[in-house]
Amino acid sequence: MTTKLPPLVLHLLAALGCLVLLVLLTLVTDPFTNLRIATVGYYLIAVAGLALLTGFNGQVSLGHGAFMFIGAYTVALLVKRVPAFPIWADLLLAVLAGGLAGLLAGAAAARLHGPYLAGATLALAVGLPAVTQRFPDLFAGSNGLSFTVNSQPAGLVGVVPPTRWQSWIVWLSVLLALVVLANLARGRLGRTLRAVRDDEVAASLAGVHVGRTKILAFLVSSACGGLAGGLQAFLLGTAAPGSFTPALSLSLLAALVLGGLGSLWGALWGAIALVYFQVWTDDFAELLSLRSDIADNLPLALYGVVLIVTVLAFPAGIQGGVRKLWVRVRRPAPSQRGES
């Protein structure tokens, strides 16, 4: 791996490899697992976007679900109102809509620090979905929109099961977006983002435009949120205000910390945890055959405990553990070396 390929090519190759692996994975798993794989995909890009904003740039957003809301409604309205648009155009517009909203939010947020930013973004997550109540004719009020997305080429209908096809589309989009993100993170922007996070004054003395950098971080991260929402709408055929509660925004942030803040890998672990932890705890609660009051609330309680324990005992998240393991595999511990 010492050949000097430019990062973009390297990232594209890696993405292609991942896509092949994922297609293989969907081929050997059942339709419902395909759906879950796709679900991990759209959460991954949402959390990865947040990783850029919060992990790299240090801006804590409690309202990232709002950008998913925008992406989802963009796709929903386009599918319903402009049926002739192909899905890739809808998704592209969802990215643009998310990015545009992020630009505005970022401009408003650039001067805010720590908890002020947190409070403002939380208000965004609570406030924005209320728009649907104000314009019920367009957004269908609290019931929201439901629709079916036609995305499969005619030749593949009946050949590839719909959930499998959907998971391919989701992951293709997600991997393309990740390539962009990874490139940004490794390049100049990544360094500026970290510089601003670590010390705004020093960064600005070194010629970094602090405000612009923060807005840019918001823009990129919200565009990812828009894509995630658009993919969710594409996958599930729904856009409703009840899906975009503050709980969603907070769970994205929780996934980021669970997975590990420092890298995009953490976003992957976080997204997997977000999807599968719920599944496991539900199954576990069912297994115990408890009284309904206890069984219903057990998954939430376990989720809470895991968040607390992670922060207290494993602050580097899952990625921290993975990294430690990786180091150990590559360089056997001294004692083992002695034995051999």
Partner: peptide
């Protein structure tokens, strides 16, 4: 995140 976890736990 820790206080958020506590929120979920206590509500449950």
């Amino acid at each position: 995140i820790a206080t958020l976890g506590l929120l979920l736990l206590l509500q449950a």
